[in-house]
Amino acid sequence: MENVVELKNVTKNFKGFSVKNINMQVKQGFITGFIGANGAGKSTTIKMMMNLLRPDAGEVKLFGLDYRTHEKEIKERIGFVYDGNVFFEGLNLKDIKRIVGPAYKKWDDTLFYKYVAQFQLPLNKPIKTFSKGMQMKASLAIALSHDAELIIMDEPTAGLDPIFRRELLDLLQEIMLDGRRTIFFSTHITTDLDRIADYIAFLQNGELIFNQSIDDVANNYALVKGELGLLDRDTEKAFVDIHRAPTGFEALTDNVKAVKKTFGESVVIERASLEDIMYYMKGRESYV
């Protein structure tokens, strides 16, 4: 099976905010980064993937199965790591394990203790005494101890220091080594993903702007810098958004080929980071 998660025309409306007509696939065996500004609808989308929220319209399928008929089978195969602590904060890890473990058919105590040791987590201290990073690691240890095929993480790096974030990325690559797992990872800290993500899904104001491999993103998007005189109504069409300064312009294109054809050697073309892409996309928004 190629797609672990499949969203078809998924729509969810709230007062003053909605997630519109999302079509998205998450490919098996890869890390998909889910990016977007705060409030873009990432958590709403993840909640629909977890069946915490039901879409108003559209179809959500995990492992090719529907929640209406296979809720338990699906959740058996998912490991989740949320932004905040969802575990009973007064309990220690041992007690949490006693509550969460038996919920899974494939729960493996040995594996759990292995990760607890690897992450250097205390078993007998209440979760509420854990730092943000430790809480995240505790969630991850639980997610990994029942042999989850899909690990869904909602902003796991928010509030973590850079060293810890690097450690996490290392760890994620390690658990991807056998190729069976899939990671879906939402974040607004895009530098985490610039390196290790295989696919990038970009959500803005409740709409999916793209879901491409990191290669395609690098091939299609670029930063272009040049003299103001080069811009006119026709040449501007190649750009998503343009920033003008007295010293020249800087713009984002989603069509590198066209830019090369139009401007040739007269402009500087540079790789656009995910942050650049998000930033310029936001700019386009304000014109519309």
């Binding site: 915490l52 809720e71 338990k72 989740f80 949320y82 602590n85 575990f87 919920a103 899974y104």
Partner: peptide, 18 residues
């Protein structure tokens, strides 16, 4: 009273329970 304190519904509904 305990359940009120935490995001316990998110937890329970993320585990394999209906």
């Amino acid at each position: 009273a305990y359940d009120e304190k935490t995001e316990v519904n998110i937890l329970l509904n993320s585990l394999p329970y209906t």
